[in-house]
Every structure is written in structure tokens, then in C-alpha cells.
Design a protein around this nucleic acid. Structure first.
Ligand SMILES: [Mn+2]
Ligand SMILES: [Mn+2]
Ligand SMILES: [Zn+2]
Ligand SMILES: [Zn+2]
Lengths: 142, 142
DNA sequence: TCAACAGTTTAGAATAAATATAATGTATTA
DNA sequence: TAATACATTATATTTATTCTAAACTGTTGA
């Protein structure tokens, strides 16, 4: 299993013990060659379906938080009812499909640099994020 | 009381009965001449402190939702632990002070039109919001 | 090799924001 | 003023998330 070896390394290098549970979560999160956006509930469901190993809800939360601290995931605030997480930790923006409740990446070069003319004394900007909410484009709307 | 008369009108015109509780909430939310950003918890605390009337938590939630449906408030998703609300319902952007946990408006003319080069087939953009996270600007940082 | 230890997982309990319920109260209208 | 629909309230419920503490496991070094 080339994949798990890779994740075992990644975990060890991060000071995290490569447990069965963490390796499984890595496979779900990082095997896809593209960005993966998810909620905890969705992640749990995927793990359950692939079901070669049981991972408790507490471990899913623990691991997601551990991965965030290590910089492998970031949280995307979208609504107050549940957190969304993103395997793309580079600076980028999002579409949010309000009908599908799905995030879609917008690469940084697909948005002109956001130029904010206002400043706050004593404060500096740490990050700038754009969220564009999208809905179906039914012509029959004003 | 000029203010409450004004709110009584506003409520009646919206099809909402002008109850003591709703008038009180209007005073807290709309008396300030500038945008008011708040969480439910903060709103409850302000009402308690001004304490000429008791307003139950359920009524605060009910009223905030009613005002959102009427377009007098909008929700700002910032973190997954609680909702922020905004009395400024025009299209605008925000600084979010991560140390004070406070929102600060950025008027639309203070940000160049956000130009997103990418599109999603069958979807149209409903809104574009920029959130710039800010922190103290201590020179002694790399 | 394996005991000891620190780190990890887990079920279940606790927390807290938000929503639902259903009884009581009140603004409106005729 | 009476009837009614709307609103408020205390309380219960829901649900995402965090906490707890006991059992388990990966790692290390003798
Ligand atoms: Mn403003
Ligand atoms: Mn919650
Ligand atoms: Zn993303
Ligand atoms: Zn605002």
C-alpha cells in the first residue's frame, strides 16, 4: 500500500502517531487529486461506507482539529449550523452553491487582487477571502 | 417618544404587531446612526442592561428572524459557533477583528468590484462578499 | 524483546446555540 | 368589548461540538 506508507510518513513527520484511524482519514481526505470540501457529518458518512475500520465520532473531530493545527486543513465559515473544512490550504476563494450546499474553489488567479482602500489604524490584514454565492440560472427570473 | 412611534410605524407597515418587546429590540438595533453588528448573546445582554422590560430569549430569536425575513437584518457567517447579524443590509464587505471578535463595515466603494473570471455552467452569482481578517499590527513581526 | 510510557481512541456525558412546543397573554378588528 | 389571530414565554428538544476518563496502542530504550 503505497498510499498508507505516504500517510504514515506524513503523520510521523508531523509528530502524530500513524494510527489506523488517522491513516484511514488521510486516505479519505488526501487521496483525491483535487480539493475536498466537507463537513464532519459528511466525512463520518464516507468513512462508514468504506467501512473497513470503525472510527469514532470523537476521533474524527480530534483528527480534523489535529490536521488543522498542522496546517493540512482549514475551516471555511459558511453558516453557523456546522463547520466546513477544506483540504486546499492555499490562499483561494469560493463559490458556494446554495442549492447543493457545496463549496467550489476559485483559484487565486481567477480573482483580481481584492483592493481594499480602507485601513484600520493599528491593524493589519491577515487574510482576504471572497465567497460568491451561486444559484441556478433559470432564465425566467428578473 | 418619537423613536418608538417611528418603530411602531415600521412594524405595522411590515405586518408585524408593534409589541413592547419588538419596539425595544428596534431601539437597540436601529437607534444607532451607524451599522450595528451583533450576536444573539450580545443583543440579549444589551436588552437586559437597559432592563426596562423583560424579553425572553425565544422572542429575541423570533424577532431577529422576523426582521431578517423583512430584510431589516442580514446574517454574516463568520464562525460555526454562533451567528453574527448586521443592521446594514446593503451590499458591503467586512473586516473581522480576530482579537476583538468584532465586525467592521467596508463600504462597497472602498473595494474595487470583485472580478471573478471563472463561471459555473447553469449557475449565476447571487452575491459576492469579502471578509478581511485583521489583527494588531505589531511591527515586531515577520 | 518487551515493559513502560505517552499518546490515542472511545463511549458516553456535558455544553451551548438554536429551534420547537404549547400554554398564556395581547394587539387588532368589528 | 368580544372574538380572534398573532406574539410571548418557560420549558423541552435538537444538534453540532467538546469534554471526560477509562481502555488501548505505538514508540522507545533497557
Ligand atoms: Mn457600513
Ligand atoms: Mn451549534
Ligand atoms: Zn477550497
Ligand atoms: Zn456590516
Amino acid at each position: 500500500m503505497a498510499h498508507s506508507d505516504q500517510y504514515i510518513d506524513k503523520l510521523r513527520k508531523s509528530g502524530l502517531r500513524p494510527t489506523k484511524q488517522r491513516i484511514k482519514i488521510c486516505e479519505v481526505l488526501f487521496d483525491a487529486d483535487k480539493t475536498f470540501h466537507f463537513t464532519i457529518k459528511e466525512l463520518v458518512k464516507i468513512i462508514e461506507n468504506q467501512a473497513n475500520i470503525k472510527v469514532s465520532l470523537a476521533t474524527v473531530y480530534n483528527t480534523v482539529h489535529a490536521f488543522m493545527r498542522k496546517g493540512y486543513l482549514k475551516e471555511i465559515p459558511l453558516n453557523a449550523s456546522q463547520s466546513y473544512y477544506d483540504t486546499n490550504v492555499t490562499h483561494h476563494h469560493h463559490f458556494f452553491d446554495e442549492e447543493e450546499n457545496k463549496l467550489i474553489d476559485i483559484h487565486q488567479d481567477d480573482v483580481d487582487e481584492v483592493n481594499i482602500k480602507r485601513t484600520i489604524p493599528g491593524k493589519k490584514i491577515r487574510s482576504v477571502e471572497v465567497i460568491a454565492k451561486i444559484v441556478s440560472d433559470n432564465q425566467s427570473q428578473k
